[in-house]
């Protein structure tokens, strides 16, 4: 059971959260099938740091963004949408 640091509640067991998947911007242009289906279906699916959206559904109800390492499951940053993104580029990460 990994711990996720909810920006509002602090570290909680992962089963309190709903995983909403890789964060990808919704196209503003919806008439282009190729673009739209890429948004719907294509995934980066990296083995490494990945940016994703979680919802603290069993807690405060906040949706937030997380940078998690998909191999180690380490979470190095979480933040609320629209807030300043933490600078993680200089931090050590495998």
């Amino acid at each position: 059971m990994i711990l996720l640091p909810c920006p509002h509640c602090g570290k909680r067991n992962s089963n309190e959260f709903s995983y909403l998947g890789e964060s990808a911007p919704r196209p503003t242009e919806t008439g282009d099938a190729k673009l739209w289906r890429a948004y719907l279906y294509t995934k980066e699916n990296p083995a490494g740091w990945t940016r994703e959206t979680w919802l603290h559904s069993g807690g405060c109800g906040k949706a937030f963004l997380a940078e998690r390492h998909s191999v180690t499951n380490e979470v190095r940053a979480t933040w609320l949408p629209g807030r300043k993104e933490p600078d993680t580029t200089t931090e050590a990460g495998s």
Binding site: S18, L20, S57, P81
Partner: peptide, 10 residues
């Protein structure tokens, strides 16, 4: 959850 997701992210 679907509603919260849209309201909070988009």
């Amino acid at each position: 959850e679907w509603i919260e997701r849209w309201l909070q992210t988009s």
